[in-house]
Nucleic acid binder design. Structure first.
Lengths: 132, 132
DNA sequence: TACTTATAAGTGTAATTTACACCTATGTGC
DNA sequence: GCACATAGGTGTAAATTACACTTATAAGTA
């Protein structure tokens, strides 16, 4: 198990919903998506596995793709989300909602005074943005 | 990959910090901890792997254990957190803080109106134009 | 006594996921 | 004709997870 240091960084399975979320707004190709993710808060993605995830999403019919050779440089595989992908994204949103509650529970136990009822307590310390 | 349904349920690596968090408050044995976790919001743990995680945590010197044969029933292996375990827990707390921000980013994109500045917006409708 | 149930702590191992290294190809600038 | 940035991949060992199964103690009960 090697529990010496925590996965500083998100569980990798977060990649799938975040990809779908971005594709809901704009059609995009893999390379582009990876760049967007780093600005989203996900630092460092394994490029190789990222492309594999995209191809798998296509196999599962959550996205579709087609080659774009119009622009300069190497051809890009442009992805678009499907109806199925959209409802799959909604499932994830529900799951993340649960997970947020879990994290709130964690911090309630970890640092109970952050959740104290009097606003005075909250003002005394920095991290009062934890619970939102 | 089989992306057909999301891991409705937490990433398993959350188990380690949650175990440590509980052990910070009370010394406990595996079976007991598993019951606590279900009330904590983690539904269904793999008992076998749970015990394996505990033994691994001990190998990593994040917890210590000793048998308790005083009480009725099978002997219990009582765990206690170490100093190292405590600081490891703190590392996790930082990591979760990051992850919470990521989830907030997710929902900002997923359902932006939840984060609208005017309270009036929140009141008007539930989610009409978001998904269609 | 033998059998069932609840508690407590595990083992074995296949399947899945992740990490890490490496490969192919196109176009631009030097 | 070579380096470099972009774009999309493969191969595979290591780690993790899921699922089935095992051992053992004590209490209750037929």
């Amino acid at each position: 198990m090697n529990s010496k240091k925590p996965q500083i960084g998100a569980p990798k399975n977060i990649l799938v919903p975040v990809i779908l979320l971005h594709l809901r707004d704009i059609n995009a190709y893999g390379y582009e998506l990876m760049e967007k993710l780093t600005t989203f808060g996900i630092d460092s993605v394994d490029r190789g596995n990222f492309y594999r995830i995209l191809r798998q999403l296509e196999k599962d019919e959550l996205v579709t793709s087609e080659w774009n050779t119009d622009e300069n440089g190497p051809a890009k595989r442009i992805y678009a989300i499907t109806e199925e992908g959209l409802s799959y994204l909604d499932l994830w949103a529900g799951s993340f909602d649960e997970y947020q509650k879990l994290l709130t529970n964690f911090f309630k136990l970890y640092n109970p005074f952050l959740f104290a009822s009097t606003p005075a307590n909250k003002k005394t310390d920095e991290a009062d943005d934890i619970n939102d």
